[in-house]
């Protein structure tokens, strides 16, 4: 079992981004496969990785890797970094500049017998398509080759856990890593699409706390709090009051500040409760003002238009943001007045 539980209070400034007074408190298991650590900058993601690798000491907690205790504040166990067997890929350029790529990998594989060492190094160089540059020094490699070299080097040491804090890792590279390494991979990323495509588990972090964790796709599709929704980039977050609840029809009436809506039935709540509602921008539909209003149509003024690569983002009054396909926008761009439709099933209510 691999499990991370740690608390860390920063009394002095460690990095430029994280202010003193910041505290970190996380507790999550790590399964084999990719676990993504997602959060805004300065949420404490890198500090978690540093703590696991042994470069930062938590104040309390316990770090277990394959049932081996790496850190335990109560038992006063703190295994030094070079005995933790954590491969660590940081954003910093860390291939040794005085050694060739092959020598870099040999350095990592030094713990193996000679034959095994050569075999491992050759295998890693091949897996990460570096055979053409094995005798080159890092300063002549491209950034992508350096990154692949650093990953190949980390895996040549046969770690028990791989920590990746580097934005250059894409889906293809992640797949290559998983083919070469069967253990748990903890990946820091700000790329939600990469989480959805390649991560098994997702841990969302905000200000040193876990906001939500679980299977990656489930977390992304069903955020269970406003904080999670905000972190996922859902722009439509509103306060509302429940004015009616109908379990028979499986729906509810919600009164927002400027308009009422029909939403899904909200279990565990009563009439009069204040709730928070999130709606994805791409779930909203827009119509011309002349169309006769139907269920959940809200008349709103268009304030701003922002063109994206494949869609158009429309910002309306009342803080409503809709994102529609470009062809849909082309069809409607001459609308004088606008109505926004909130499909009831798209409302997430807490």
């Amino acid at each position: 079992m691999t499990h991370i539980r740690l608390t860390r209070r920063l009394t002095r400034r460690l990095t430029r981004q994280i202010p003193p007074g910041f505290s970190l408190e996380v507790d999550f298991p790590l399964a084999p496969g990719v676990t993504a650590l997602f959060g805004s900058p300065a949420a404490g993601k890198s500090l978690i990785l540093d703590s696991i690798a042994g470069f930062a000491e938590p104040d309390a907690g316990r770090i277990l890797l394959d049932d081996v205790i790496l850190f335990d504040a109560e038992a006063r166990v703190n295994v030094p970094p070079h005995r933790r067997r954590c491969g660590y890929i940081t954003g910093r350029d860390a291939l040794f500049p005085h050694l060739t790529l092959r020598q870099n990998l040999m350095f990592a594989a030094a713990g193996f017998a000679r034959l095994e060492r050569h075999k491992r190094v050759a295998e890693m160089l091949e897996r990460f398509q570096l055979t053409a540059v094995v005798e080159a020094r890092p300063d002549v490699l491209t950034p992508n080759q350096k990154l692949r070299g650093a990953i190949a080097r980390a895996l040549a040491a046969e770690p028990n856990l791989l920590l990746i804090d580097e934005r250059g890792v894409d889906e293809a590279l992640l797949q290559a890593i998983r083919d070469a390494f069967a253990g748990p991979i903890l990946l820091v990323t700000a790329d939600l699409d990469l989480c959805y495509a390649a991560a098994l588990e997702l841990v969302m972090i905000e200000a040193g706390r876990i906001v939500q964790r679980g299977p990656a796709r489930q977390v992304i599709e069903a955020p269970d709090s406003v904080e999670a929704a905000r972190l996922l980039g859902i722009p439509n977050l509103f306060d509302a009051e429940i004015t009616a609840l109908d379990p028979g029809r499986d729906n509810s009436r919600l009164q927002f500040e400027h308009f009422p809506l029909t939403g899904p039935y909200v279990p565990g709540h009563f009439r009069g409760d204040r709730v928070r509602v999130a709606v994805r921008a791409e779930d909203l539909r827009v119509h011309a003002g002349e169309v006769s209003p139907q269920l959940n149509f809200v008349a709103a003024d268009l304030l701003r238009i922002s063109h994206r690569t494949r869609s158009v983002r429309l910002e309306f009054s009342y803080g409503i943001v809709a994102e529609i396909p470009r062809h849909e926008y082309e069809r409607q761009k001459d609308n004088k007045k606008w109505q926004v439709e909130f499909p009831p099933e798209s409302l997430r209510v807490w």
């Binding site: 690798a53 970094p81 070079h82 350095f107 990592a108 980390a154």
Partner: peptide, 27 residues
């Protein structure tokens, strides 16, 4: 020296002695 090199060497399992001779001194 950039501490990144020493950290990398440590996470690769190198002891202090090895880091001194193979990383710090050559650099």
């Amino acid at each position: 020296l950039d501490p990144a090199y020493e950290d990398a060497a440590r996470s690769l399992g190198a002891s202090g002695w090895r880091i001194f001779w193979r990383v710090a001194m050559p650099l």
